[in-house]
Measured scan of single mutants.
Amino acid sequence: MAEAPPRRLGLGPPPGDAPRAELVALTAVQSEQGEAGGGGSPRRLGLLGSPLPPGAPLPGPGSGSGSACGQRSSAAHKRYRRLQNWVYNVLERPRGWAFVYHVFIFLLVFSCLVLSVLSTIQEHQELANECLLILEFVMIVVFGLEYIVRVWSAGCCCRYRGWQGRFRFARKPFCVIDFIVFVASVAVIAAGTQGNIFATSALRSMRFLQILRMVRMDRRGGTWKLLGSVVYAHSKELITAWYIGFLVLIFASFLVYLAEKDANSDFSSYADSLWWGTITLTTIGYGDKTPHTWLGRVLAAGFALLGISFFALPAGILGSGFALKVQEQHRQKHFEKRRMPAANLIQAAWRLYSTDMSRAYLTATWYYYDSILPSFRELALLFEHVQRARNGGLRPLEVRRAPVPDGAPSRYPPVATCHRPGSTSFCPGESSRMGIKDRIRMGSSQRRTGPSKQHLAPPTMPTSPSSEQVGEATSPTKVQKSWSFNDRTRFRASLRLKPRTSAEDAPSEEVA
């Protein structure tokens, strides 16, 4: 009796068929016929556990003709996506030579605008209408194809895939403007070719909807975003200037109206006075309405000098805001240009540092100066060695804690006790272990408590650290204090090793 083939788990290929790579489910599931010992083939499952149809090819690079078809379809799909992405970037994010197409579109729109203006002049109306009709045909074809291509290429973005995504893309403001202008152009052409009475009025009214094509030149909205950011950044200043200017306008108009309503027919109503105030304070000055009385002229002159300053403030605020924003954008561009080279330089330096163990090129690091100058660790070890030599091999803490019996001779020589300023008595072995921070803190506390006492003391002649007598400086308080830590004499004296002298005989010792 033939044995059933062993159940295979995992992703390994079956024996005897090495080139074939078959994806098997996580659990080997066989058909009921196979479990019962029949000759049925096992049921194939996909990666998600769903059964595959009987005629479906197995996924994998070596699955025969199905694999070749899959490779061809995958390559075609990649080319399709690449083309779609390229078209989308050309239309929505132009760079380099892609601006040539947008310059061509701008020339078409500008020519249409010029011809629309010439069509309103009686001398050039006939020729402009003929040229404009031909140009409209060209623009309908160009913009119609462009609109379709834009909607198709938007599928390269995830949020615009599918018919719902394309509809979302078509609802964008600039796409809506394109659609309105396209419909208006078709209506103008249809009305112009019919030759009816309505054609002339339709051409004159709907052609100027094509002015909206100038708005579509900035599809990404960079200028509007820049203007919005400047207004938002200086909103408080703008609101303040406009508010005060509006108050000056209504008060000036009302007072001039009261002064001129009886003697001047131009100011017969408050609305006429508001019109005069707006034209005057905005420095336009049509001259259609002028005050005639001396009181009205004085009020107009005073409020004009006051109001023009507030009406001119928004222009200066926006101008300075634009300058600052442009400078910030230039700085951001320079930062973006330098970020990648800086990151590459840091990575290269780290690779060199991690692979080169000698690091002989590091001549400006802490390790280099640590090898030249005595390190703080060596100074600490030197302090501890000196203290243990004086205390008979014991550390200062051990000397303080060691009990001394009554009447027993002390094995240590008597030492002079010292007192730290602002604290109780402490171990004499710690007097010379006072660090730089303690010395600086002690000097600052003395300056806070009594700076007036220092200038009363007789001035001391500054001497070099080499000429100081070591026996005289029994305490860190003898170090000359200065008002600034930048004094080199104080810094050098604080680094010197001060020996400890006994109370009975204080021989001067120098520590090399």
Score class of each variant (00 low, 15 high):
Lys172Glu: 07
Val188Asp: 14
Cys156Trp: 07
Glu136Val: 02
Gln210Lys: 15
Ala184Asp: 15
Gln125His: 15
Asp178Tyr: 06
Asp178Ala: 09
Gly228Arg: 04
Ile239Ser: 05
Arg219His: 14
Ser201Ala: 00
Leu203Pro: 14
Val181Ala: 05
Leu133His: 04
Leu132Arg: 07
Tyr232Asn: 05
Arg213Ser: 01
Lys333Glu: 05
Ile177Asn: 08
Phe106Tyr: 06
Thr193Pro: 04
Thr290Ser: 10
Arg220Cys: 05
Leu115Pro: 06
Ile211Val: 12
Leu133Ile: 01
Arg219Gly: 13
Ser253Thr: 00
Phe251Tyr: 11
Lys225Gln: 05
Gly221Ser: 05
Ile177Ser: 06
Ile189Asn: 13
Phe208Tyr: 10
Ala271Ser: 07
Asp218Gly: 07
Phe208Cys: 09
Met206Val: 10
Phe310Val: 08
Lys236Arg: 01
Met206Thr: 03
Leu212Gln: 15
Glu136Ala: 01
Met214Thr: 02
Ser116Cys: 04
Leu133Arg: 09
His102Pro: 03
Thr240Pro: 04
Thr223Ser: 03
Phe310Ser: 09
Asn196Tyr: 00
Arg204Cys: 03
Asn196Thr: 13
Pro173Thr: 09
Lys225Glu: 14
Gln194Pro: 00
Leu133Phe: 14
Ile180Met: 13
Val231Phe: 08
Thr278Met: 11
Ala184Val: 05
Glu136Gln: 12
Thr120Ile: 02
Val188Phe: 09
Leu238Met: 01
Leu209Pro: 10
Leu113Val: 00
Phe106Leu: 07
Asn196Ser: 11
Lys172Gln: 12
Arg216His: 06
Lys325Met: 08
Leu108Pro: 13
Ala191Glu: 13
Trp224Leu: 11
Val188Gly: 13
Gly245Trp: 10
Thr223Pro: 00
Ile105Leu: 09
Arg213Gly: 12
Val109Ile: 11
Phe143Tyr: 15
Ile211Ser: 11
Glu136Gly: 15
Lys225Asn: 08
Gly192Asp: 14
Leu133Val: 12
Cys175Tyr: 03
Trp294Cys: 03
Cys175Arg: 10
Leu249Val: 13
Phe208Ser: 06
Met214Val: 02
Pro173Ser: 02
Leu209Gln: 10
Val181Gly: 06
Ala271Thr: 01
Phe110Tyr: 13
Arg213His: 02
Ile197Phe: 01
Asp178His: 08
Ala191Ser: 08
Lys236Thr: 14
Tyr257Phe: 15
Ala271Gly: 09
Gln210Glu: 08
Phe254Ser: 10
Val188Leu: 07
Val149Phe: 12
Val215Gly: 03
Leu113Arg: 02
Tyr243His: 12
Arg219Leu: 12
Arg216Cys: 01
Asp178Glu: 15
Phe198Ile: 00
Ile211Thr: 06
Val109Leu: 11
Lys225Thr: 08
Arg213Cys: 03
Ser269Cys: 02
Ser201Phe: 07
Leu133Pro: 02
Ile197Leu: 04
Cys175Phe: 00
Leu107Phe: 11
Gly221Cys: 04
Thr223Ile: 04
Met217Thr: 14
